[in-house]
Nucleic acid binder design. Structure first.
Lengths: 344, 344
DNA sequence: GGAGCTGTTGTTAACGCTAACAATCCATCC
DNA sequence: GGATGGATTGTTAGCGTTAACAACAGCTCC
């Protein structure tokens, strides 16, 4: 009886015997080297397909030092943006002949980040991509001296590392200006978690748009990306509306999920959207066209982000510098925004 | 000047020289073998930490034939369920000392599935986990003769392969019975895509609950998991409600996203939920407590699913059979369901 | 006190691949 | 016609690790 099913995988030498050449010639064919006679090449090709040979990645990695794989470090992969970016990354990596390993951080600490990167380095990945990480983890990234290229995706601009990012501020300005142009005196803001660079970028853009327009900058409300925090912010704002503080007529919420919670709270409290208050979100998740009312929001092209991330990695591996341009977000107007009521 | 930054990674032999032992002794310490004198072990340990040595995964894989890694094949990772399951899988794999590679299928064809599995096999992964795949891909999985264990997660029960799954029918029965118990004469159903095993399971459970109760089984409406298709179904049903077909008082929608679309369509058409029609979803995504109205739904514990998937893989690798029990879903009652109006 | 353990360490040979070099063949050129 | 050179093929070594075996110490036991 055989040890366990598989009778030992095929090696180069098996193919070589079958084709009547040396193993090195087979290696040359497999790797597409020039200087193999067409007839030989074809004979080897045939032997390969007949036997169903696949090169052993581990052996190759041992001698070349490259696994043709990337490591992806991320947290919050269960959220729309990161998941969508992962999709783009994997596809682009695969197209370039690389495979993708993932590590999900248990928390956003430096230790977790360091451990994940270390594990990838031990696996001899060719590069590590850090996706949408927060707080300490981002700081850590900045300081790391890894023996492989370290690329950051979607964490906002970072001078110290190669980075691919969406221009968060631009998106936030777009949203805020849209509301101001509708005649709102000012725009309130529900932020994301303070240690998220995306959240900070959106806050910066919001503030800048207000200041540029000479509008007052109200104290922002703080959220954590989840609908629940948006709901709380919504209750708070609804209370102010009912108390007659009529500067609350427009809200820019830092992501769509929180906007959903906010809409739900406003509806509960009898505040009409967009009649009393206009709301803009961020991300353009597929659901938001079906919110009540359909949500005006800022679309980020996450798949593109993933693609550019891989592009940047490949450029780095070839030793080219390639300065990446930010991906630009777009405003998507739906029914949650409307003109400000004319003041009393 | 050095070739390119890294001065060559440390090898066992470097540590051996530093500690004054043979490389094999270092290997024994690294792998926790018994029969190393405590004093030696400690000396080697110290050398390891001083030098910052990390074993080379490729070399180890070459000789052992195991990479201590799993491959995850999936599509639709941008949806809540798969993403959440990935989280559970990665964490459990890491805890067991395995790393995780991902392959995302471009489409649900057999060719795509075969190619993904092949790539993982060439990478010498220890096992391949297939997550929530559809159509041809699932069929393909059934026929594959891979040289590594192939485990299916979340695709419903499958006699031919080790499988971890949520009892979809049970969840669907829970939802349907809940509506019947509220006094609805029958329950309409919006399905998922027909080639999804989950969708089929939910339809089976829905039908069974109706038949058990002696209720009529209406023709189901077909969706594709996305909010847009739920919206269409909602318009269709709203039209029937307004046409006076008063058997449309309760709908079980195969996932929460479609339920959102449906709620939005009903609201647009002036159909009150739960006044005129009660709605139940499936998944319990974090948003659904903030839908208008908050959605009654069926909760699946995806993280648990991931954990059990890894458990099953590990059992297989140890050669134990381990028959996995299904994960049981739970009904979460919110405000989208209410008693049927008493008939005219 | 020597046979026979047991525990500890070292030596050697793989694993499957690529890189470097050597060898061969054949055409071309003076 | 032999030197020159390019194209093609083969040979050898080594990547860093583990497995198998050998070697040796120190102990127990009769």
């Amino acid at each position: 009886m055989l040890p366990d099913g598989a009778p030992r995988a095929l090696a180069l030498s098996d193919v070589a015997v079958h084709a009547g050449v040396s193993h090195q010639t087979v290696s040359r064919v497999v790797n597409g080297h020039p200087n193999v006679a067409p007839a030989t090449r074809e004979r080897v090709q045939r032997a390969i397909t007949e036997l169903g040979y696949r090169p052993n990645t581990a052996a190759r990695a041992l001698v070349t030092g490259s696994t043709r794989s990337f490591g992806l470090v991320t947290s919050h992969i269960n959220q729309y943006g990161p998941a969508q970016t992962l999709l783009g990354l994997e596809k682009a990596a695969r197209a370039a002949g690389y495979s993708l390993g993932v590590a999900i951080l248990d928390d956003d600490s430096e230790a977790a980040m360091r451990e994940a990167v270390d594990r990838f380095v031990a696996q001899s990945v060719d590069a590590v991509v850090a996706l949408s990480t927060y707080g300490q983890a981002v700081e850590a990234l900045r300081r790391f001296e890894a023996p492989v290229p370290l690329i950051a995706v979607q964490v906002g601009r970072d001078e110290s590392r190669p980075t691919v990012w969406v221009a968060q501020e631009v998106g936030a300005e777009l949203a805020t200006r849209h509301l101001l142009e509708l005649g709102h005196r000012t725009v309130h803001h529900v932020t994301g978690p303070p240690d998220s660079l995306e959240a900070r970028g959106r806050m910066v853009g919001w503030r800048r748009a207000l200041e540029d327009a000479g509008a007052p900058v109200p104290e922002p409300l703080h959220g954590d990306w989840w609908p629940c925090s948006g709901h709380e912010a919504g209750r708070e704002l609804a209370a102010r509306v009912r108390a007659g503080q009529d500067d609350v007529t427009a809200v820019f919420v830092a992501n769509d999920q929180m906007a959903l919670g906010l809409l739900s709270a406003l509806a509960d409290e009898g505040v009409s959207v967009p009649g009393d208050v206009s709301v803009v979100g961020f991300d353009d998740v597929p659901e938001c066209a079906y919110f009540t009312p359909p949500l005006t929001t800022v679309r980020q092209d996450f798949a593109e982000l993933g693609r550019r991330g891989v592009e940047l990695v490949l450029a780095r591996l070839r030793g080219e510098p390639l300065e990446s341009q930010p991906v630009l977000p777009q405003l998507v107007v739906r029914r949650s925004t409307g003109p400000a009521r004319t003041a009393v």
